[in-house]
Computed example of a mutant assay.
Amino acid sequence: MHWNREMSDLVLAVYSITLIMGLPANLLAFYTFVRKVRRDAKPIDVLLLSLNISDLIFLFFLPFHMKEAADMKWNFTHFFCAMSMFIFFTAIYNNTFILTAISVERYLGVAFPIKYKIKRNPRNAVITSFIFLVISMGHCSVVFIVQYWIPTNSTTQEQLTQNACYVEFSKEQLKVLMPVRLELFLVLFCIPFLICCFCYINFILILSRLSNISPKKRFRAIGLALATLLVFTICFMPYSVSHLVGFIEWHSPHWREYALLTSTFNASLDPFIFYFSSSALRETLKLCTQGLLKRLSCYPKALYSQSSTDQ
């Protein structure tokens, strides 16, 4: 990013909110999903665990970008710059695939309940998650290519990235980067987004016609659909559109830095999808809440007892 004090404060605020909100929720989800997969694995549990692990890896690397924002320059090695951005982008696009797979799984479950229940297998979800990860990593490996692509002019790559990580590019680098960004927009965003819209729109229509579903279950199902589409729209769409605009104008638009910030919110919004998708997580959250309230209710009694003893 091109740093100034206002941009630094904004980035720190967004990253801090994402980390504070996302880390506890994702750790709780990880604990729940691991237990659920070990006990009784279903395809949706495997997909949710894959999405959860992707978010946790993303959150692990987020503090390094927070330090970059605080220092207003990149103070780590060039290799770590490439590695951190590779993880950053891979997590984003891997999440789009997994969210799409969850939408397909939910749609098939209501559109073809009997056939899908017979044929569903957690192993297929594991294989699917692995394929998604390989595709995402393959596309995002362009970060390493661009980072170590030697420009033909006299300015070295170290000079170009002296104070920033993955910002300045030569003309030769743009020839490689811009077509790849266009492909990312078309393949890793547009296609998953269209599939997700198709599945969840039909998912909601089918549920609206079923009279044997309780209002509570219907609310959770619609909440899942709306939460997923909200994540796509808020987190992935602005940044993906910047790829298209950048390809047309043949340079990164100035607002791309702000669009990238919205993608970081994904790690703090995914727990809403976990909540609507997993009854095990809802039960774990309920138990945690009850335990916390019980402790809080006992705390005033303990203070009263202590004060009485002192007297």
Rank of each mutant, 00 (worst) to 15 (best):
residue 214 S to M: 08
residue 171 K to H: 01
residue 179 P to K: 06
residue 255 W to T: 04
residue 218 R to M: 14
residue 219 F to A: 15
residue 217 K to A: 07
residue 240 S to V: 01
residue 310 D to F: 08
residue 12 L to W: 03
residue 58 F to S: 14
residue 215 P to Q: 11
residue 266 N to W: 05
residue 259 A to S: 14
residue 163 N to I: 00
residue 144 F to L: 13
residue 189 F to Y: 03
residue 3 W to Y: 11
residue 297 S to L: 15
residue 44 I to C: 09
residue 139 H to G: 09
residue 221 A to P: 03
residue 41 A to S: 15
residue 160 L to K: 11
residue 258 Y to P: 03
residue 191 I to R: 07
residue 112 F to I: 00
residue 168 E to R: 04
residue 138 G to Y: 06
residue 286 K to G: 06
residue 187 V to D: 01
residue 300 P to W: 08
residue 85 M to H: 10
residue 291 G to Y: 12
residue 89 F to I: 02
residue 122 P to Q: 13
residue 36 K to Y: 03
residue 207 L to N: 12
residue 68 E to A: 12
residue 34 V to G: 06
residue 252 S to F: 02
residue 192 P to E: 08
residue 87 I to V: 15
residue 151 P to A: 06
residue 112 F to H: 12
residue 237 M to Y: 04
residue 56 L to E: 10
residue 177 L to N: 02
residue 267 A to Q: 10
residue 209 R to M: 07
residue 311 Q to V: 15
residue 214 S to T: 12
residue 136 S to R: 10
residue 305 S to N: 09
residue 40 D to S: 13
residue 247 F to E: 04
residue 126 V to T: 08
residue 50 S to L: 07
residue 4 N to S: 12
residue 151 P to W: 05
residue 159 Q to N: 03
residue 101 A to V: 05
residue 107 Y to A: 00
residue 174 L to N: 02
residue 238 P to D: 02
residue 49 L to Y: 09
residue 162 Q to T: 00
residue 105 E to W: 10
residue 69 A to W: 02
residue 73 K to Y: 10
residue 287 L to S: 10
residue 118 I to Y: 14
residue 49 L to W: 09
residue 20 I to S: 11
residue 181 R to T: 02
residue 222 I to F: 06
residue 116 Y to M: 10
residue 174 L to P: 01
residue 228 T to N: 11
residue 41 A to P: 13
residue 198 F to H: 04
residue 24 P to C: 15
residue 162 Q to D: 04
residue 253 P to F: 06
residue 296 L to N: 14
residue 53 I to S: 06
residue 2 H to S: 12
residue 60 F to D: 00
residue 80 F to P: 01
residue 177 L to P: 01
residue 299 Y to N: 07
residue 282 R to V: 03
residue 111 A to Y: 05
residue 303 L to Q: 13
residue 293 L to W: 12
residue 269 L to T: 09
residue 70 A to P: 00
residue 194 L to T: 06
residue 243 H to A: 01
residue 145 I to K: 11
residue 173 Q to I: 02
residue 45 D to R: 05
residue 301 K to A: 13
residue 250 W to M: 07
residue 306 Q to M: 13
residue 143 V to Y: 03
residue 127 I to F: 10
residue 308 S to L: 11
residue 156 T to M: 05
residue 9 D to W: 13
residue 204 I to H: 05
residue 246 G to C: 04
residue 254 H to A: 15
residue 15 Y to R: 08
residue 180 V to D: 02
residue 116 Y to G: 05
residue 132 F to I: 05
residue 104 V to S: 00
residue 115 K to Y: 10
residue 87 I to F: 03
residue 156 T to D: 07
residue 175 K to T: 02
residue 105 E to Y: 12
residue 146 V to Y: 01
residue 250 W to P: 03
